[in-house]
């Protein structure tokens, strides 16, 4: 799937757009950045309820293409400009974490680890 498909699936709003046609196969949902960093497998999408710049830094270190803020949360200007500098798309969805992850999983996105 592509980043733009996530927008449809999660009825998401674009906060800041980078490459919306970037291919994404795996995702990770967490508010704990060290847990995100614990799995080096190619993960392209981060779903989180956390709003600080370290979310973008974490995505950057992991070469992720897209961050989805759940529960309608919106980050401040600092976070948005950092994401723009890093070519990472920022989206927000009204769905909560569990539901947002479930919808993406049902649409074929996987966790990136074995047995997922």
């Amino acid at each position: 799937m592509q980043v733009k498909d996530i927008i449809d699936i999660l009825e998401a709003e674009i906060i800041s757009a980078a490459d919306l046609e970037a291919e994404v196969r795996t995702a990770c949902g967490s508010d704990m950045m060290s847990d995100v960093l614990a799995f080096v497998k190619d993960q392209s999408v981060l779903l989180t309820g956390l709003l600080n710049p370290q979310v973008v830094r974490t995505a950057e270190m992991m070469d992720m293409r897209c961050i989805v803020f759940v529960r309608g949360k919106e980050p401040d200007e600092n976070v948005i400009s950092l994401a723009q500098a890093m070519d990472i798309t920022l989206l927000k969805t009204r769905f909560r974490m569990f539901t947002a992850c479930g919808k993406l999983y049902m649409s074929g996105l996987r966790g990136g680890c074995e047995n997922e």
Binding site: D31, M32, M33, S34, D35, A38, L50, N52, T58
Partner: peptide
């Protein structure tokens, strides 16, 4: 509350 402090930092560093 900032997303760190779970006791994963040093183990992650060792892993990578």
């Amino acid at each position: 509350s900032l997303g760190f402090g779970a006791g994963m930092g040093l183990p992650n560093i060792k892993k990578y």
